[in-house]
Amino acid sequence: MPEDLAHFREVTGSATVVMGRRTWDSLPERFRPLPGRRNVVLTRDTAWSAEGAVVVHDLASALDTDDDVWVIGGGAVYADALSSADRVAETVVDVEVDGDTSAPTLGEDWTLVDEGPWQVSRVDGTRYRFLDWRRRA
């Protein structure tokens, strides 16, 4: 949805974005690397490289920066990084989809600080909203 992509650009700004290799591969080539951001790609393949990507082989290396960092996928990277996160920006899309990957469940140590209103995509009328979660201190 274009509205979600615009929100993603706004939230991640000029931050570092961390993603798994399959997430990198899923991005259309014309958008790789994501512009205006430091793109860090996690992979176990020590021979893998991509123009515009900083390649790391463990999550600790990906998160070892003073930059603002956003983990953008995939599912295993989300799950592994959640214990280090202090904020989650969630887009809820009002559709049922088949799939084998989902975002990790947030526990009781998370507080919903902004529950945006339901909106309708201008492309196909799909309902969506943005949620902003913060880890309790």
Rank of each mutant, 00 (worst) to 15 (best):
R21Q: 07
W70V: 08
P104T: 03
G116L: 01
G116V: 00
D100L: 09
A60H: 13
V120R: 09
T43S: 13
N39F: 01
A50C: 05
R38M: 01
A137H: 12
T101G: 08
D45V: 12
V95P: 02
T23Q: 10
D109A: 14
H7D: 09
W70R: 07
E51M: 03
R44G: 13
Y128R: 00
L5G: 04
A81T: 01
V93I: 15
D94N: 04
L5H: 11
R9K: 15
T46H: 14
H57T: 10
D58Q: 13
T91W: 15
L82Q: 06
A79L: 01
W110K: 04
T105C: 02
D25Y: 00
V41G: 03
Y78L: 01
A89T: 12
D94P: 00
E96V: 15
D132C: 07
D67E: 12
R135P: 08
M19E: 00
D114W: 05
P28I: 06
S121E: 05
R32W: 02
D25N: 07
D114E: 15
F130H: 11
D109C: 09
S49E: 13
D109E: 15
T43D: 10
L27E: 02
S102P: 04
R44D: 10
G36S: 13
G36I: 11
D80P: 00
L34A: 02
R127S: 04
S84I: 00
E3L: 01
V95Q: 03
A76T: 15
T23C: 12
W110F: 11
T101N: 07
Q119W: 04
S61R: 14
D58A: 09
A81Q: 02
D132W: 08
D66S: 13
V17H: 00
R37M: 03
S83M: 12
A47S: 15
A15Y: 08
V88S: 11
T16M: 09
T126D: 00
R136M: 13
V77P: 00
E29Y: 01
D114V: 03
T16H: 04
S14I: 09
R37L: 03
R44I: 07
R87I: 06
